[in-house]
Amino acid sequence: MSGMKMWAIYDLEDASASRDEAADTFYSLCNIDSNLCQLPKGLAVEVVVLYVGDMLFMPPGKFHKVYMLLMTFAVGGHLLSYLTMHLSEWSCFLDQLHGSLFTNQEHQDTLLVLHRMVVAIPRLSHCKLYHHTMVALCTMVLNPGQYMPQCTSEDDDLPHRPGKGGKKAKGRKAVKTSKNNLDSKCCINQANEIANCVLQVLKLDSAGAVSVLDDQPYNEVGDEVELGGALAQFQAY
């Protein structure tokens, strides 16, 4: 709207890195105690300058820093997509793990939107769905406590519940469930049923779903999946 913003956008040089490897690389970038004099090994950076009238689309899971050299006013928003759920899951996972270093943002309605995205899956015959993105979406809905941002208070009115899974999930405290949930119990239950059914169609249990996310390249969508009539029972909801 006014002023200018400089965005430093980082990418991994090794696109096949696992999400643990990627997390460690970016952690070295964000750790202010490391006193970096040059870019950590394995990372590349691009600088984008936005002026009045410019817009930047930032995919999920894209590490970036922002500099403002002038008094600046800007507006922005965010969205969730079935095609990038694997990156959104990874971002939320890191937010819970290292949120004090990685972000100053909190999107309070994320879980609410994820529930509705799962409830809509039985009607997505016109959309292409992919293995890793579906696993990521279902895992976030079934284990929301694993993805609660560090900046979230236990007293916030968020429909989080403690969850399990993930190699680094040990030691996380349980999260209280607020009485004033933003999501209806009916929608939550329906989303959980559909998410479990999707994982069954993909022949995965909770441990297998975690392995898919942990052991595959963090930005890999996986093969296209056909859920067929397995979810027909949920189309009337």
Rank of each mutant, 00 (worst) to 15 (best):
H78L: 03
G42Y: 12
D33G: 04
C127A: 15
M68C: 15
N104I: 00
S91I: 06
H126A: 11
L111P: 00
M68A: 13
G145T: 03
G53P: 01
L124A: 03
D24V: 11
Y147Q: 01
E89G: 11
L129S: 05
D20H: 14
Q146R: 15
H64S: 05
W90M: 12
N31V: 00
M55S: 14
L70S: 09
D20Q: 13
L94Y: 10
A22P: 10
F102V: 10
H131I: 03
Y51A: 14
Y51I: 04
L56H: 02
A23L: 14
Q146N: 13
L137Y: 02
H98C: 07
I32M: 10
A22V: 11
E89K: 10
V113F: 04
P40K: 01
L80T: 00
L43M: 06
E21V: 02
Y130M: 10
A23G: 14
L94K: 05
G77V: 05
C127Q: 12
T84D: 11
V52H: 05
L56W: 02
R19E: 15
H132N: 15
P149N: 13
R123E: 08
P122C: 05
H78M: 10
A23Y: 14
F93P: 04
G42M: 10
Q96L: 01
I121Q: 05
V135P: 07
L79F: 11
D95Y: 06
I32A: 12
C127H: 11
V48Q: 08
Q96E: 04
K65D: 12
D109N: 03
L137Q: 01
I121G: 06
R116S: 08
L39P: 01
Y130I: 05
G53K: 03
Y51S: 13
H64L: 04
G42A: 09
C92F: 15
K62N: 02
H126V: 09
L94P: 04
E21Q: 10
P40M: 01
M71C: 07
E46L: 03
Y130S: 11
G145A: 06
H78P: 02
I32G: 11
F63P: 08
F93R: 15
